[in-house]
Design a protein around this nucleic acid. Structure first.
Lengths: 127, 127
DNA sequence: ATCATAATGATAAATCATTATCATATTGTC
DNA sequence: GACAATATGATAATGATTTATCATTATGAT
């Protein structure tokens, strides 16, 4: 049985809201900055504690990109990949997937999953 | 003008050999372990220093995978991606590439490059 | 409103990969 | 072979991220 976090605090509500509203993988600092608009004075420790709780509950997942510290997004999304803007550093969700990478597999290897990351400029950064 | 490392030492020779022989991206510790078979007593600092020198020379490149510290491979290979064995942790080079990911791009975004990582079991680990 | 206790914020501590330091050893030039 | 200078190995220091600590505050059940 999932225990979950026991109390509903302003901080936790703000963090969940921010993750739902921005709808892209966020670093702990991005979460903090956005959540402070709702709860000024929030501390980074609360962000780390809450993210850890959300992961344990299963309501968030971590998103690891090459050479980057983990970001976090709400769980329950369908299979997808990510876009990393090389200018602003934000990460966005992508739809679609080439699906079959088996033609790249050496003989005798078996594949379980894959990751695709696209890099470039996001809409905002191209304006 | 590339300066390069000034002296040819047993350690540097061993590190270059190991990278050429194993022909897959290696972590500094993997380099150390393999190179110690050729030069017992080699220290990890020498591995880091030599890898840094190889990068500056342009004769090695770093390979970043999600959630992992950088690995290093010799430069000059053509466009390729990597396979990460979930059992032994070794990373292998893959041939081939789906090539076109533009169908995944949101409107208004521009892509510059991409990374693909396959995860699964390598030949050795399936035996 | 009271109260037990979980949660918070500030910050110290832990982690882990990488780099700097420095005494000693090695290289390669003469 | 001698010598100046670079390289090495051991390890301390660093930097970045994450976790632990603890006094104080807020939650929610009564």
């Amino acid at each position: 049985m999932l225990r979950g976090m026991e109390r509903s605090t302003r901080q936790r509500k703000a963090i969940r809201e921010v993750m739902a509203e921005l709808d892209r993988p966020l670093s702990p600092n991005e979460v903090l900055e956005a959540a402070r608009h709702k709860v000024p004075g929030m501390g980074i420790a609360t962000v780390y504690r809450t993210l850890k709780g959300l992961l344990e509950e299963g309501s968030a997942v971590s998103v690891e990109l090459p050479g980057e510290a983990p970001r976090y997004e709400l769980a329950g999304k369908k299979h997808h990949h990510h876009f990393h803007c090389t200018l602003c550093g934000k990460v966005f969700e992508l739809e679609g997937c080439p699906g079959d990478f088996s033609f790249m597999l050496p003989k005798g290897f078996k594949t379980e999953k894959h990751e695709v990351v696209l890099y470039g400029r996001c809409l905002e950064c191209l304006k």
